[in-house]
């Protein structure tokens, strides 16, 4: 039963939204909006389900006495506290803001700083493992762009910042990026068409 209706629903909904783009009539627009809003609601519910799944996984990990169950316990506790406070105080409450500013923001910021050190270290060790031409070109390009991004203290390297770096970004980078974007767009279009015709069923069923 589900094998028949699930594809039908998915196809109908996708066709309605697509047709709404080509024939923006009021009815189709309204119908599309309704379907989109349903998707928004389902996405919100999916986040809630994800949180619950996270809880179950870590609870199971604690129950099986697996390695790292302490961090799982800390996670569960933090989750429950934040959830309770947010439900009680509200997301805009200064307490919640302080928790965010004291925990989430520094943690993520620190991770970004460590990533900087890691990227520098990776740059240093790149030629040790891959001492080929492409690795050297990559590394030189990175250095040039880095030099063009910020002028040197007390000295600005001519043409690097004004000509080389802009050309690298506008020509080489942009061309590459556009190629990637086109590929992504085509892939997204083909994936959508496969879902519309029922070839792919990410929602499940055979």
């Amino acid at each position: 039963m589900s094998r028949f209706f699930a594809p039908v629903i998915a196809i109908v909904a996708g066709l309605l939204v697509l047709v709404g783009y080509f024939f923006p009539t009021n009815s189709l627009a309204a119908l599309r909006m309704i379907i989109v809003q349903w998707a928004v609601i389902l996405a919100g519910a999916a986040i809630f389900v994800g949180v619950l799944n996270l809880l179950s996984v870590h609870v199971k990990k604690i129950g099986n006495k697996e390695k790292g169950r302490g961090y799982s316990l800390l996670l569960i506790i933090s989750l429950l506290i934040t959830f309770v406070l947010g439900m009680v105080l509200g997301p805009n409450n200064p307490i919640m803001t302080n928790i965010f500013n004291a925990i989430i923001l520094p943690v993520e910021t620190s991770l970004m700083a460590v990533m900087a050190v890691t990227l520098i270290y990776a740059g240093i060790r790149l030629l040790r493992h891959r001492n080929d031409l492409m690795a050297i070109i990559f590394l030189l390009t990175a250095l040039v762009v880095m030099l063009g991004s910020a002028p040197l203290p007390f000295y600005e390297i001519p043409l690097v910042g004004s000509y080389i770096r802009p050309k690298i970004i506008s020509i080489f980078a942009s061309s590459g990026a556009r190629g990637i974007l086109l590929g992504v767009a085509l892939g997204t279009l083909l994936t959508g068409l496969r879902i519309l015709i029922g070839a792919d069923r990410p929602y499940g069923g055979k």
Binding site: A116, I120, Y121, G123, I124, R125, L126, L127, R128, N131, I136, L139, A142, L143, M146, L147, S149, A150, P151, L152, P153
Partner: peptide, 20 residues
């Protein structure tokens, strides 16, 4: 930012050359 970026550039350059 510029000093830090310069330091990174220097370390990458020196390190890469050394490893190479």
């Amino acid at each position: 930012y510029s000093v830090g970026l310069l330091l990174a550039e220097i370390m990458i350059a020196i390190g890469a050359m050394t490893n190479l």
